[in-house]
Design a protein around this nucleic acid. Structure first.
Lengths: 231, 231
DNA sequence: TCTTGTGAACTGGTTCACAGCT
DNA sequence: AGCTGTGAACCAGTTCACAAGA
């Protein structure tokens, strides 16, 4: 036992690198496809191909979860699905609340594929009286003031912010106060939250601007200019 | 001249790191806010705060664009906006086509803040006859078969895929064939495209699964377990 | 013989800390 | 005196290449 005392870096308790965690759901999706095709086993090469990553990276990613492959053979599809799902917390269903019943909020409520991944939209909230009481994919829109009650009722830890940018910080403050500890932010705003709260941000406009940057470079012929310096 | 021949890494022609490019739009947003507040100048510290990054990172990011600050003073808000905007290709308006007029496609068409960032939704396409002809935020939904015509008509280089996962690869193939060179993919599918085409992927379900992972760890008390190994 | 699992090298990105300029 | 711009140290993540094992 004492042998390994200092040999391990700092991943003592299986803290998986962020980059790996973000890819696990992709692997899970690829495995679901393989399973649907009737495959019961697969190699790292096949799975990597289906997930669009390099095989070595895939193997390293999976190695963080444990050794669930068989050398010379590959991975058992069902076994691997089970272990990745467990690691991602899919043994339980996570009830989430969506704040903002505008176009994006509606799109999210209706998004299929949440259910199969352990995510359930438990409630949708809005401040606009015109929206309150309407039905979004089977969930009734409730007043934002119900936030605390909703969080309590469903034991909600994860919230989605789909409001205009101006409203986002106020909503985030209320979410934190209500006890939410993870926020997915679609509003074009930088949220200020305590360190104990995890925030992920998705900005549709930013994604397009990054693409515009690449187009711009392409258009001005920057691609093969690596030798310029030697001239 | 010969002095520098091999001293430079490979950024000869101002190829900005991907991570930096992804942050430039955030800086632009923060600068817009400062400008709206009547500020004409700002320090790296203030801007970094508003953008939610560390000041050294901000300065390094900006240094890739050139030296547009003044030592001892800071940055001129208007000047910096101009240069970041130019680098991101905002001197022109990018017409984009959205494929898929479902909930997400509708949300994207209606998304405000595209216009101010040089993005214009030129067309929305769908295969569903029930959707064709309907109006989405001022844009009429056209049949998917019009793709080539639309790309030609507007000179489109950037497309958004907002279809179900099963349809995504077929759509991507058609986009590439029509001459599109950048794709923003919202469909839960791994797109196979030629190397010359840039793809960015946003998967709503993945983002939530990553949050669920963090919640799961929190719940099982993994945070302060770094000493476990020494015991 | 085939494929996993993983040290080791490498690459890209972040942070530090200070020289250089105003 | 103050703030930018940037080399240098550092850290995370990726890829390589091969030993270990079915």
């Amino acid at each position: 036992m004492t042998l390994l005392r200092t040999s391990r870096p700092a991943r003592a308790d299986r803290g998986i690198p962020d980059a790996t965690v973000a890819r696990l759901p992709v692997y899970l999706g690829a495995l679901a496809e393989l399973a649907a095709d009737g495959r019961s086993t697969c190699s790292s090469g096949e799975l990597a191909e289906a997930a669009g990553v390099n095989p070595a990276k895939l193997r390293k990613d999976l190695s963080y979860l444990g050794s669930y492959g068989t050398r010379g053979v590959g991975y058992d599809v069902a076994v691997l699905r089970h272990h990745i799902g467990r690691e991602l917390g899919q043994t339980q269903t996570w009830d989430v609340v969506i704040v903002g019943a505008g176009h994006l909020g509606s799109a999210l409520s209706a998004y299929h594929g949440f259910d199969s991944r352990g995510i359930n939209v438990a409630a949708v909230l809005d401040t606009d009286p015109a929206r309150i009481g309407t039905d979004l994919a089977g969930v009734e829109v409730r007043p934002f003031a119900d936030l605390e009650a909703v969080v309590e009722e469903f034991g909600i830890a994860i919230a989605v912010v789909a409001t205009p940018g101006e409203a986002a910080q106020g909503v985030a403050d209320a979410l934190v106060a209500a006890g939410v500890t993870s926020i997915l932010n679609f509003a074009p705003a930088v949220l200020q939250v305590p360190e104990t709260v995890t925030v992920r941000k998705v900005d549709l406009s930013i994604e397009l601007q990054v693409l515009a940057y690449h187009e711009q470079r392409r258009a001005s012929g920057h691609e093969a200019a690596d030798e310029e310096v030697a001239g």
